[in-house]
Simulated scan of single mutants.
Amino acid sequence: MTELKLPNPPAQRRWGKVLAAVIFIGLVIWAFTGMPAFSIKANAVMVTKSIGDGLIHPDWAYVWTGDGEDLTSTLLETLGIAILGTFISAVISLPFAFWAAHTKHKFWLVTRSGKFVLTAIRTFPEIVLALMFIKAVGPGSFAGVLAVGFHSIGMLAKLFSEAIENMNGGAGEAVTAAGGSALDVTMLASLPQLLPEFVSNTLYRFELAIRSASILGMVGAGGVGTPLIFAIQTRSWPRVAIILYGIIVLVTATDWLSGALRKRLV
């Protein structure tokens, strides 16, 4: 029996793979050359022991003190920032979503401009937005709400627009054929299809907003991040530990509740 020989890949394809490998290796080497030399400070062991001891022995007295600055109060403030920021962004995202959905416009420039605006909004990190709003309205939870809400518009409107683009138009055509008006098409065909996607995406964004609101306090935007950065600066590791445990409980409970709601509503 004669052995079948597979044809060799074209030379152009081989050289393309070699070039891609060389570029990849070059990028990895270039990235490592920019890293500082690896070194361990003399007090690294002592600091590590202090952090570990703080994590094992958290400051349980800080859970509730009644002065409005304890862990429970700041966690509730963080939750409020996430709820208000998500609600504001969900309402404002709807017109942006219809603006950016390509199925709703005949002119490509309208859709492109909408998608460009959403991309521009998502470009700004929440920390930067929080610093900007702090300068505008002052430090506190209101700046955190504005930062979370503004940043969430770009992501929610993008998800909403994709849901609009993927919507089945057959139901709307059936309502129109039966003599329905544009309002009837919206209420009887479009909303029943879009509402589950809107609810699911909003709940998912709320989960992310909880994490974001926990960090924004480090720059003065309210929430549990404010006492966390103070505790880190003063090296109060037991206080840091109980705050981190509180954030874990809040995020875990939010994820569980959000998942349960999505199963029931979607």
Rank of each mutant, 00 (worst) to 15 (best):
residue 48 T to G: 15
residue 52 G to K: 09
residue 56 I to A: 12
residue 57 H to D: 14
residue 57 H to A: 13
residue 59 D to S: 04
residue 60 W to G: 12
residue 61 A to D: 09
residue 62 Y to G: 03
residue 66 G to Y: 13
residue 69 E to N: 15
residue 70 D to W: 11
residue 70 D to C: 01
residue 72 T to K: 13
residue 73 S to C: 06
residue 73 S to I: 11
residue 74 T to N: 11
residue 74 T to L: 04
residue 74 T to I: 01
residue 75 L to I: 15
residue 75 L to W: 07
residue 76 L to S: 12
residue 77 E to C: 09
residue 78 T to S: 10
residue 79 L to Q: 13
residue 80 G to W: 00
residue 80 G to S: 07
residue 80 G to A: 01
residue 82 A to C: 07
residue 83 I to G: 09
residue 83 I to M: 11
residue 85 G to I: 13
residue 85 G to R: 01
residue 86 T to S: 10
residue 87 F to A: 13
residue 88 I to V: 08
residue 89 S to E: 10
residue 89 S to V: 05
residue 90 A to N: 01
residue 91 V to P: 00
residue 92 I to Y: 02
residue 93 S to K: 05
residue 93 S to A: 07
residue 94 L to Q: 01
residue 94 L to P: 03
residue 94 L to Y: 07
residue 95 P to W: 05
residue 95 P to N: 01
residue 96 F to G: 03
residue 96 F to V: 07
residue 97 A to G: 05
residue 97 A to V: 03
residue 101 A to E: 02
residue 102 H to N: 11
residue 103 T to Q: 05
residue 103 T to D: 10
residue 104 K to N: 10
residue 104 K to L: 11
residue 107 F to V: 15
residue 108 W to D: 00
residue 109 L to N: 10
residue 110 V to L: 02
residue 111 T to E: 01
residue 112 R to L: 05
residue 112 R to G: 09
residue 112 R to Y: 04
residue 113 S to E: 08
residue 115 K to T: 12
residue 119 T to L: 15
residue 120 A to Y: 06
residue 121 I to R: 00
residue 122 R to T: 04
residue 123 T to Q: 08
residue 127 I to T: 03
residue 128 V to Y: 08
residue 129 L to T: 09
residue 130 A to H: 06
residue 130 A to Y: 07
residue 132 M to N: 05
residue 133 F to C: 06
residue 133 F to M: 08
residue 134 I to H: 01
residue 134 I to T: 02
residue 135 K to T: 10
residue 137 V to R: 14
residue 138 G to S: 05
residue 138 G to Q: 05
residue 139 P to M: 07
residue 140 G to Q: 02
